[in-house]
């Protein structure tokens, strides 16, 4: 049912117009759903609201059997997903995200993550707000739980092209101040910024009671640094050029980038933030399904 609707919304033509983004999203979600009998959104935004008497047509999975045992009547659990929860997807659209060694640049990959998550969230009738930022918020789609907005979101995502330096922390602080209602913040970025400031921004969101999920998006070349010979690195975001022989500094570089990832991850974990490292050479489907199944497990744990 959901799948068919999603297919309508993300029809191939619309997707073609939207830089093939939607197609990826649909493919990912469909593939995911085809493999799993449980819907992925089940573990997503789950906050118990109230009981309601069962009426035919309701999902039997939501019947509260404990109440039935006590009262011999059928009640179903009702969740506050439609009204209370907003997923704020924030995509770093700075120039550094435009780097890509393989099929996708980091920003393209980030857009795909944003698209797929938007699709999923909208399909479980939750609201999505999507913002793309660099030094400031460049494109912000206010929250909506209308599935029809999905196409608009895709188009806006596809149209965005980053060419500015980044200021993650500033944007996070802004968002923390602006967003009163508790929700989920999904932050997709390479975090090539002031690490401590970024962490402060994340902390700010957490103080606001928001749940934060970080998708740390890195290119495989950025991880492996596989260059040889004499290379001039022309820095994005107006950083001066560096001429060097990468082979001779590869280990140092790898050490540095690993410790950078570790710092980000540790900072996230300390603040109760889900940290997901994203390698843009890996298939998006596996990245997301890995995370979502992890999330389901932890959410289940939370329920008990």
């Amino acid at each position: 049912m959901d799948v068919e609707q999603a297919a309508d919304l993300l029809d191939p033509e619309a997707i073609a117009r939207a830089d093939a983004l939607g197609l990826h999203a649909r493919y990912v979600v469909e593939g995911y759903m085809a493999g799993e009998h449980k819907s992925p959104y089940r573990g997503f935004a789950i906050e118990f609201a109230q009981h309601r008497e069962y009426s035919p047509g309701d999902d039997v999975r939501h019947i509260d059997w404990k109440v039935n045992g006590r009262t011999d009547r059928l009640f179903i659990k009702q969740y506050e997903q439609e009204t209370n929860y907003v997923a704020n997807i924030l995509l770093d659209g700075s120039e550094s995200m435009t780097y890509g060694s393989g099929q996708h640049t980091k920003i393209q990959y980030g857009k795909m993550i944003a698209a797929v998550l938007s699709y999923l969230i909208l399909h479980q009738r939750d609201a999505v707000a999507l913002g793309v930022f660099d030094e400031e918020m460049k494109d912000y789609a206010p929250r909506s739980n209308n599935r029809a907005t999905l196409h608009t979101l895709m188009a806006r995502l596809a149209a965005f092209e980053g060419d500015q330096a980044t200021d993650i922390a500033g944007n996070l602080h802004d968002m923390a101040l602006q967003t009163r209602r508790k929700g989920i913040f999904v932050l997709i970025s390479d975090f090539f910024d002031e690490e401590e400031a970024v962490m402060e921004g994340i902390q700010h969101l957490r103080f606001g009671g928001h749940e934060v999920i970080v998708f740390h998006t890195l290119d495989p070349f950025e991880l492996e640094f596989p260059f040889n010979g004499l290379v001039e690195f022309d820095g994005l975001e107006n950083i001066p050029k560096i001429l060097t022989r990468p082979a001779e500094i590869r280990r140092t570089y790898q050490r540095e980038i690993e410790s950078f990832q570790r710092r980000i991850r540790e900072g996230c974990e300390k603040n109760g933030v889900h940290y997901v490292r994203v390698d843009t050479s890996k298939p998006l489907a596996s990245v997301l399904s890995d995370y979502l199944s992890f999330r389901l497990r932890t959410a289940k744990g939370k329920q008990h």
Binding site: E95, S96, M97, T98, Y99, K106, D190, F192, D219, E222, F227, G229, L230, V231, E232, F233, D234, G235, L236, E237, I239, I242, L243, T244, P246, I249, T252, Y253, E256, I257, F260
Partner: peptide, 17 residues
Amino acid sequence: KFKKVTWAAMKFIKLSV
């Protein structure tokens, strides 16, 4: 005579160099 690469993670190259 060298290759030119446009690069994002300059901070780490700079540190390593």
